[in-house]
Design a protein around this nucleic acid. Structure first.
Lengths: 203, 203
DNA sequence: CTTTGCATTAACCAAATGGTTAAATCAAAT
DNA sequence: ATTTGATTTAACCATTTGGTTAATGCAAAG
């Protein structure tokens, strides 16, 4: 079950699956080895410790979540409305590809905030977010949109995009939605979330 | 350090703190015992197993989160706008009292969705949520608000109220907010989130 | 064919962990 | 004072878990 592909990659793939599913504390090295179809000792041969392996998986996940946030300011030329519509749609679509990443990242950061602090500066999306906020302030001054706190705008967008995934089982339980219905709701949100934000921003 | 108060309560208090902080997999019985200032064996004397103790803590936390959601439909006489303003304010205030509960509950449900299914029916807030949804549909038909999916309305409110807490360290890291600034942002949201929702609902 | 160096495995280890037990302590009733 | 029942403790146990090691497999270079 393990011969074909590169062993290192096999391990990372397996580690991703197990860590994201169970978290650092809940993940077992044996389970990762089983998932990869190899011996447990191989994990330590290629990646020294559970911690090291976890850091690789976590940092990639964090980059994926925050990196996506960076998309918030691309397409600098478009009017803010188009920018927001495009952002929401692509962000929801992006998160939907790996719906369990947000809760994994959020939870691990919650237990060890230092995981974030280390990587903050080096993450690409960061400066884009700042320039987006400046855009919002400028547009507000020009009267194109209502004057709002860019931080709150940012929080509102991210909340409505990510939370339904982070709380997916809770949402499905409370609202009695099967997977098909849940996906329909998500699909509808790609437009709807932007509608909500833009209605609020109307001057 | 343990004599004064009821031992059972001391244990529950300690278990709450440790479980909410580290999750089921990350919590150690010894840590709970230390936190309560008692012997580890006492945990098993009063509550048979880690699982049993966890269930008590988790169910109370779940009730607190979902129970609050039930507030969504109280004050049945008020107009929908007042209802929503009151709901958002009290919900954010409620979550702010125990900001780490959402991520705890969400994360544990994520790893064991059965935890939710068991308790769903018996949770009080549930029927209130349903009746709130009917109210929304009625108000939409009467033209008091725009006709929107009550599920989406519900998701939007809950997302904007809960997510900032669930992702608190991530939010603080990305937006460079210290605790004081974070609390100010939250305070501002008690009104702002309702503004966003009501702007969207305007017919 | 032999050597060399990486890859892989099985067996093993020490520490941690959830749980148990038998003895001791304590408070109230007799 | 003694008995009785619940409470508390220290020592112990079996299993799990992250990690190590020594031996083996194996493919390419000599």
């Amino acid at each position: 079950m393990a011969q074909d592909r590169n062993t290192e990659e096999l391990i990372i793939e397996a580690a991703k699956k197990i860590f994201v599913q169970r978290g650092l504390a809940g993940a077992r090295m044996q389970d990762i080895a089983d998932e990869a179809g190899i011996n447990k000792a191989m994990l330590h041969y290629y990646y020294r410790s559970k911690e090291k392996l976890f850091e690789i998986v976590f940092n990639e996940a964090l980059g994926r979540i925050i990196g996506r946030l960076g998309q918030i300011a691309i397409d600098g030329e478009l009017p803010l409305e188009q920018k927001i519509r495009g952002l929401v749609e692509s962000y929801i679509a992006g998160v939907a590809e790996t719906p369990y990443l947000p809760i994994f990242v959020i939870n691990e950061i919650n237990q060890r905030p230092d995981l974030l602090v280390q990587r903050m500066q080096s993450l690409s999306g960061f400066s884009n977010i700042m320039s987006f906020m400046k855009d919002v302030i400028e547009a507000g001054k020009r009267g194109e949109i209502k004057q709002v706190s860019p931080i709150q705008l940012f929080l509102n967008i991210v909340s409505m995009c990510i939370f339904p995934f982070a709380a997916k089982p809770l949402v499905q339980g409370v609202l009695q939605l099967d997977n098909v219905q849940f996906n329909l709701v998500i699909e509808e949100r790609k437009k709807l979330v932007a509608d909500v934000i833009l209605a609020w921003l109307k001057p």
